[in-house]
Amino acid sequence: MSRKPLAIGTLSHLIGYHLRRASGAFALDFSDAMSGTGMRQVLLGILAIVEANPGVNQGTVGIALGIKRANMVALINELVDAGLLARVTAPDDRRAFSLTLTDMGHERLKDCTVRIEAHEARMLADLSADERQTFLELLARIEARKA
């Protein structure tokens, strides 16, 4: 027996509602894509920033990703313990640590990036390349509001 979809009333025009629903769908598919890797979005974010900025200080990475300092220490420890990041005292500031990816970190990020690209291709299959670009630009404008 087929049921008529339930009306969602005022929610139908609320962008925040639809963003949350879309984010939930993305998160579930992302989790499936990362199955067996031991990686979470936050850890991948850290690896990506460090790969793009070798030797970056962990506080700067935390600021870029919006991670509180207390949480950042535990996340960096997790990546160091997993052999994905190398942490050394920064030569220009003995109170700070600089970060670089290990060979294993580069390989893990590469593998996860392939998985993420497949995940995004699935999730965005109904959007053209131009629509995807517009979507990114619109999201960036929303993100810039919090800065």
Rank of each mutant, 00 (worst) to 15 (best):
G59D: 10
S31G: 12
C112L: 04
R3I: 06
E107L: 05
H13K: 06
S31H: 15
D92R: 09
I15G: 12
A147L: 03
S2L: 05
G36I: 14
P5H: 03
P91Y: 01
I116G: 10
T10D: 15
G9C: 08
K4Q: 06
A118L: 10
S2R: 05
E143P: 12
L84R: 15
D130S: 01
S31R: 15
A140Y: 02
L109F: 01
R21M: 04
L44N: 08
I46M: 06
M1F: 10
I116H: 13
D81M: 11
A125G: 09
E143Q: 07
V114R: 02
F30K: 03
T113W: 06
D103V: 13
F26N: 06
E51H: 03
T102S: 02
T10I: 12
L136A: 06
S35L: 12
M104K: 03
F30I: 11
E143L: 07
A125E: 11
R145C: 13
R115D: 12
F26K: 06
G45H: 04
A22K: 14
V50D: 00
R87E: 02
F30W: 14
F97P: 04
A22F: 15
R108A: 09
R115S: 11
P54Q: 00
H119Y: 12
T100I: 10
G105W: 01
R115K: 12
L136C: 03
H119T: 09
L136M: 07
R108H: 08
Q41T: 13
G83D: 05
L109N: 03
A22D: 12
L28M: 11
E117L: 15
S23D: 07
S98Y: 05
S35V: 10
P91Q: 02
I67H: 00
V80T: 10
M72L: 06
P5M: 04
N53Y: 15
R20L: 15
A22E: 13
G36H: 01
A64I: 06
I76F: 04
L101D: 06
S23M: 11
L138Q: 13
T100R: 14
P91I: 02
F26P: 03
G16V: 07
D126R: 09
D126L: 01
R115P: 13
L6P: 12
R95C: 02
V50N: 02
T100M: 09
R3V: 00
E143T: 11
G24L: 14
K68T: 09
V61E: 00
I49F: 11
R122W: 09
Y17W: 08
A52E: 11
T10F: 15
A129V: 11
L79A: 08
K110F: 07
C112Y: 02
D126P: 08
G55H: 07
H13W: 12
D126V: 11
M123G: 08
A90Y: 13
L28E: 14
R21E: 01
R40I: 08
D126E: 04
A82G: 01
D93M: 08
R108Y: 05
Q133T: 07
A82R: 00
A118Q: 14
L139Y: 03
L65T: 04
S35Y: 11
A129Q: 12
S12E: 11
L84M: 05
V73M: 13
L11I: 08
M72E: 00
H13Y: 09
A52I: 04
G105F: 03
Q58W: 14
G59N: 07
L99Q: 07
L124A: 00
L79D: 00
A7I: 04
I8P: 06
A70M: 07
V42G: 10
D93A: 14
T89M: 08
V73Q: 14
E120I: 10
D130Y: 13
R95Q: 09
